[in-house]
């Protein structure tokens, strides 16, 4: 498991160094589009239909459309200094105050060097008091709301959240309001629910679709073929792609100017 970044939880005067790891494995089995004839991974080009040619990275900018069809060109996102990954605790609500609709992505938090004690303390206190921490976080340059909570007695987890204003409010009125059921109907429904009431047991719900796909890949393994791409041209392209990706990653993490 690779850490996404190192950061700091700011909690009053205390700051706790942490590492952030993505908590969830992607559910999808990795697949790529390849050219059937030669098994080469296809490439996408940034093509300008007006100028009838493929563009290079430096020629492409971000434009926001206006209602009248014009565009304003946005400046490239400001580079942030590396290590500016602060999770600032705003307050401590109770978990049930926060509707699950706002949760987006879950991360494990691991204490960094020197942060063990404060980390353990924060986890224990939140668990004892039945509270979670509402925080403001930054991942890359994007700020979000987040909840930091004790997952168990000793480990903290963070959930990146949607901003509450993103919720499409009109959906909350989809259910009928004045449709009273009779006592008998209610009684029947309750009996049915009680009959099916069970605790949640994660091990009972494997991802069958994914397993099926993995079995399918395994069965097809004898037919696997290497890309019939002219070597070493592909290796050069791969090398140059790695260089480009590294430059891009550095630009995103703001470490491009050492």
């Amino acid at each position: 498991m690779r850490s996404l970044y190192k950061g700091i939880i700011g909690f009053g005067l205390v700051s706790i160094p942490i590492q952030v790891f993505k908590a969830m494995e992607t559910e999808r089995v990795t697949t790529h589009w390849i050219h059937e004839a030669c098994h080469t991974r296809i490439q996408y080009q940034k093509y300008c239909p007006a100028c009838e040619r493929a563009l290079e990275g430096g020629e492409v900018v971000t434009g926001a459309p206006l209602p009248d069809g014009r565009f304003v060109v946005l400046p490239p996102p400001e580079k942030r200094p590396a290590g500016d990954h602060t999770i600032t605790i705003l307050n401590f609500p109770e978990l049930q105050d926060i509707d699950p609709v706002f949760y987006e992505t879950a991360y494990w938090l691991k204490p960094g060097p020197g942060g063990q004690k404060a980390y353990a303390l924060l986890a224990q206190v939140m668990r004892d008091m039945g509270r979670v921490a509402l925080a403001e976080m930054r991942l890359r340059s994007r700020p979000s709301l987040a909840v930091v909570r004790a997952f168990n007695d000793h480990t903290l987890m963070m959930h990146r959240m949607y901003y509450p204003e993103s919720l499409r409010q009109e959906g909350s009125g989809f259910g009928p309001v004045d449709l009273a059921a009779t006592d008998k109907e209610l009684e029947m429904a309750k009996t049915l629910v009680q009959h099916m009431a069970e605790p949640f047991d994660p091990s009972r719900y494997p991802n069958e679709h994914r397993l099926e796909k993995l079995r399918q890949i395994e069965a097809l393994m004898p037919t696997a073929e290497a890309p019939r791409t002219a070597q070493p041209g592909q290796e050069v392209l791969d090398l140059m792609e790695k260089l480009r990706a590294s430059v891009q990653a550095q630009a995103q993490h703001g470490t491009g100017t050492d």
Binding site: E56, G57, G58, A230, G233, V236, L237, L239, M240, K242, L243, R244, S246, V247, Q250, A251, T255, G256, T257, D258
Partner: peptide, 26 residues
């Protein structure tokens, strides 16, 4: 275009320091 014995060397605009650190890492 890149094929056979010929490869088109690619580069990046502007960000020479980041490119240098990528080149050094490799």
């Amino acid at each position: 275009s890149t094929r056979g014995l010929v490869a088109v060397s690619e580069g990046v605009p502007d960000n020479g320091a980041a490119f240098f650190s990528a080149v050094r890492d490799m």
